[in-house]
Nucleic acid binder design. Structure first.
Lengths: 340, 340
DNA sequence: ATGAAAGCGCTAACAT
DNA sequence: ATGTTAGCGCTTTCAT
């Protein structure tokens, strides 16, 4: 900066004001158009680049936020990341993504914020059981945080879906109306030792119809195509196999369709399949996949929540609804295209 | 740090040595075990957190690298990111991901490195035509860079696949041997105004068999399931439609299978399909997708290349092979499972 | 085995 | 409209 100042025949202050471009108060008016141009030219000839760590050290702020996700591959993360980042960029912030497949990695990513490498974080879909503790502790230490989950807000905000239970209930009603009695479940968790909200919705609705919830009809692995495929195959290999499968994810539903087709079953005649999430792929797969999920998910409000919290870190955490779920019947359960 | 020093009754130097833990020379021997423990306790009671921007400013180094990808959704990015990050972590570095869907975003992400927010970057699969220019210019300005692509190395290293052309050739041979003459192509580019290496491999091999390359049989959009689906559907709607489709991506191949099934075609009897990339999904889809791709991709050497370049930034750029392609015939072209 | 102090590059309060 | 200067929090050389 000193070099630039010398070249432009101004002080470092002037250089700072030109390149720092405060969006606040004493920005434009301070420097004359002529001086500003001289500085810009000097920057060009010198090849000067601002040193961000120095700026961040001084400003005590980075204008950068972290998006923490458990894995890249999830079909909605692309959508979510794009929605969120566009809001952040519009507000002058940058974003980067850190993959946190384990609680330890989540912790170390969150540690970047007290470490002043970022101003805050958005946490997507870490369904690990010890995640809440980690988030609560981080928030208690003043880390501005928004979680997209069903957690209880506690110093951080929670963005969550609405009517998930209702939509899943409608999916089950739909299967029952079609005469299905042997309905299996493919969930996210590898085991049934911990509660899973979508399983609870599934279970309650089955019980409501007077149908038994048979634990030999429950599998995990909905998060990963291959795992769900294995789960579906083992369901279909049962001597008394299900006539319908409800999966807690769409990729699990699609994997189930594939496993069923490979076993020679026709869909939905021999096996009805319903997924969750209503991702685009549901409409492409043949037969198209019935799904409970949001009509058109929009994650931009998640970013807005973080912006609010950055402005006022002391706000108590709150729950906010950012997408409303519905049931979309398609070929995989009805046999004909009722809805796209 | 001053607070910690006071609490522990030592100097800030000592605190720095304890928490900075130089992995180099004067680290362990300098501080006595007793003093070290006193400092650690003080850190605990004070709740001290190191300020990374200050450290990075002073060290002129961040021990952080960027992974630049064009979109999250690509099926191999999960794998690549995990491979690369594990090598980096093992070497004491951290990694974050920045999504660069446009050349402008790629540029601004790369600018973080002269900006001293990261030490270097790995660029995955930006197939945009102006990308090479951006990378060359960044490298010329001293940005340590590794590109996973088929670009010409120029100040940065290039990690690339091997025998891609050969594997695609085998795939085409396979189709020709099965009697196919009307073979369509679904590529990455939206138009044919720019050369595309996989299309070139496809084209050359067809010509080698004396088959015409019909431009009404070429579509784009292989990168996105929905786009590929649209492309495949328009191919199948032709009055004289292809009997085989070769897609430059596996998700394009799977989308083609779906489009064909929806049109009432049997696979491979009415339409043979081959993809590229050999992703896990190929073995799950029904019928399983024949594919040209690596047997088991391993991206760790990409990270190794960057580590080398960080050590010696002046090294001229080189090409390195990190995965070898083969052709894997499966049900979507043969009708029976020859290979998994 | 430990401490004093310079300075990394920048911003912003306070001059003028 | 522009300049002076005191730090931001840390690392590291040089002393002791």
């Amino acid at each position: 900066m000193a070099d630039v100042a010398r070249e432009a025949n101004v002080s470092v202050t002037t250089v700072s004001y030109v390149i720092g471009g405060r969006r606040g108060s004493p920005a434009g008016d301070r420097i004359s158009a002529d001086t500003r141009q001289r500085v810009l030219d000097a920057v060009e000839t010198i090849g000067y680049r601002v040193n961000l760590p120095a700026r961040n050290l001084r400003r005590q702020r980075t204008d950068h936020v972290l998006l923490l996700i458990d894995r890249l591959a999830s079909p909605f993360s692309q959508h979510a990341a794009a929605d969120i980042e566009s809001v952040l960029i519009r507000n002058g912030l940058t974003m980067s993504i850190v993959i946190c497949p384990t609680p330890a990695r989540l912790q170390s990513a969150l540690d970047m914020i007290p470490g002043r490498l970022a101003d805050g974080a958005i946490v997507l879909g870490s369904s690990n059981p010890i995640t809440p503790d980690i988030l609560v502790r981080a928030a208690a230490q003043g880390v501005p945080l928004v979680s997209v989950s069903t957690l209880v807000p506690d110093g951080f905000d929670v963005a969550q879906t609405h009517d998930e239970d209702l939509a899943i209930g409608q999916a089950i009603d739909h299967l029952v109306e079609l005469g299905h009695k042997r309905i299996a479940f493919i969930g996210h968790l590898p085991d049934q030792s911990r509660p899973e909200t979508r399983f609870e919705s599934f279970r309650q609705r089955l019980l409501g119809h007077g149908l038994p919830v048979d634990h030999t009809f429950v599998r995990g692995g909905a998060r990963v195509r291959h795992d769900a495929y294995i789960g579906a195959r083992s369901l279909l290999d049962l001597t008394s196999s299900p006539t319908a499968v409800f999966s807690a994810s769409d990729i699990g539903g699609i994997a189930t369709i594939w496993a069923a087709q490979r076993s020679g079953r026709r869909i939905p005649d021999d096996l009805a399949v319903i997924g969750c999430g209503n991702i685009d792929e549901c409409r492409l797969v043949f037969p198209s996949l019935s799904s409970a999920g949001p009509a058109q998910p929009d994650y931009s409000m998640v970013a807005t929540l973080l912006l609010q919290r950055l402005r006022d870190p002391a706000r108590p955490g709150e729950r906010h609804v950012f997408e409303r779920w519905m049931f979309f019947p398609r070929e995989s359960s009805t046999g004909s295209l009722l809805s796209t």
